[in-house]
C-alpha cells in the first residue's frame, strides 16, 4: 500500500514540475497549433457558429442596437481601414462629386437596379445615433443617415433562394505578396432586413466624408465595424459565399476573422 502511495507521490511531483514549466515554454510552442489552417485553430473557430446561433436566438430578428442622444456625440467618427481609395474609377467619381455614381444591385433579384445617389436620397431614410465598435477594441458614437437596406431589397425583389447580401467595394487593401485585394463583405438576410441596417450617405448631419466611406457605406449596428463595408460599388444577392474571394464571406474573414461579428 505504502509503495503505491510513494509511486503516486513521485508521479505527482514529476507531473507538477512538468506542469509548472508549461507557461514558460507554452507561448511559442502553441504558435504552430494556431497558424492558419491548423486543425486546433479550425476546431476552436467553430465556436463562432455557436455564438451566431445563440445570439440570433437571444436577440430575435428585430432586437435593436442601443441608440444615443445628440449630446453623446463628443467627437468625429474615427476613420479606420481604407481612408482614401486609389481605384481609378473611384477617383474619377470622387472628383465629380459622385454625380456619376450608380449603386448596382444584382444577383438573385427580380429586377436589376442601378441607383444614383439622388435616387437613394429620395428613398425612405433613417437616421440614428449609434456606437461603432471596432474589432480592435475601441468605440465611437456617431449619427448615421441612410436608406434602409430592406427598402433597396424590396425595390429589387429578392428571390427566395438568396441567403446573403454581398457588398463589393472600391477600396483595396495591400496584402504584400498577394498584391492589392478588393474589400468585400457579406451579411445574412436577417441582418439585411433589420430596421437599423442602412446604406449610409450621411454622417453627423453632413454628407458622408471620403475617409468614412463616401459615397455609400453599410451600417450593421449589431455587429463590429469590419462588417460595415465602405465605398460600396455594388450589391449582390447570393445563395452561397464560397465562390467569392477566398470563400469566407469577407476580406477580413479570408484573413482569419470570424464571419459573424456580433461578438
Amino acid at each position: 500500500m505504502s509503495r503505491i502511495i510513494i509511486n503516486r507521490r513521485r508521479f505527482l511531483t514529476v507531473a507538477g514540475v512538468a506542469a509548472s514549466t508549461l507557461p514558460l515554454a507554452g507561448c511559442d510552442a502553441l504558435d504552430g497549433m494556431l497558424s492558419s489552417g491548423a486543425t486546433a485553430r479550425d476546431v476552436m473557430a467553430k465556436a463562432n457558429g455557436l455564438t451566431y446561433r445563440v445570439q440570433r436566438f437571444l436577440i430575435g430578428a428585430d432586437g435593436l442596437a442601443k441608440e444615443f442622444s445628440e449630446s453623446e456625440i463628443r467627437q468625429g467618427q474615427r476613420p479606420n481601414g481604407s481612408t482614401d481609395p486609389t481605384d481609378a474609377t473611384y477617383i474619377a467619381l470622387r472628383v465629380a462629386g459622385f454625380a456619376g455614381y450608380r449603386l448596382d444591385v444584382g444577383g438573385l433579384v427580380d429586377r436589376r437596379l442601378r441607383l444614383s445617389l439622388d435616387e437613394l436620397r429620395n428613398m425612405p431614410s433613417r437616421t440614428h445615433i449609434t456606437r461603432h465598435d471596432c474589432v480592435e477594441g475601441w468605440s465611437c458614437i456617431a449619427k448615421w443617415t441612410g436608406v434602409p437596406l430592406s427598402a433597396v431589397l424590396d425595390e429589387a425583389g429578392v428571390k427566395s433562394e438568396a441567403r446573403y447580401v454581398l457588398f463589393r467595394c472600391f477600396d483595396t487593401m495591400n496584402l504584400g505578396l498577394s498584391g492589392e485585394v478588393a474589400y468585400y463583405e457579406s451579411i445574412d438576410m436577417l441582418d439585411a432586413r433589420h430596421p437599423q441596417t442602412i446604406l449610409a450617405y450621411g454622417l453627423n448631419g453632413e454628407p458622408l466624408p471620403v475617409a468614412n466611406g463616401a459615397p455609400l457605406r453599410l451600417r450593421v449596428e449589431r455587429q463590429l465595424g469590419y462588417k460595415m463595408a465602405k465605398y460600396i460599388r455594388s450589391i449582390e444577392l447570393v445563395s452561397d459565399l464560397a465562390p467569392y474571394g477566398q470563400g469566407k464571406g469577407g476580406f477580413w474573414e479570408d484573413l482569419g476573422y470570424d464571419w459573424y461579428a456580433g461578438i
Binding site: 494556431l34 455564438t51 474589432v135
Partner: peptide, 24 residues
C-alpha cells in the same frame, strides 16, 4: 510582450478565436 500572448506574434483574429472558444 510575445511571451504573454497567444499566438506569440501579433494576430488579433486568432487571439479572438482562442478567446471565444475558451470563453464558452
Amino acid at each position: 510582450p510575445g511571451w504573454l500572448t497567444v499566438p506569440s506574434y501579433h494576430d488579433l483574429a486568432t487571439g479572438r478565436v482562442v478567446h471565444f472558444f475558451f470563453a464558452w
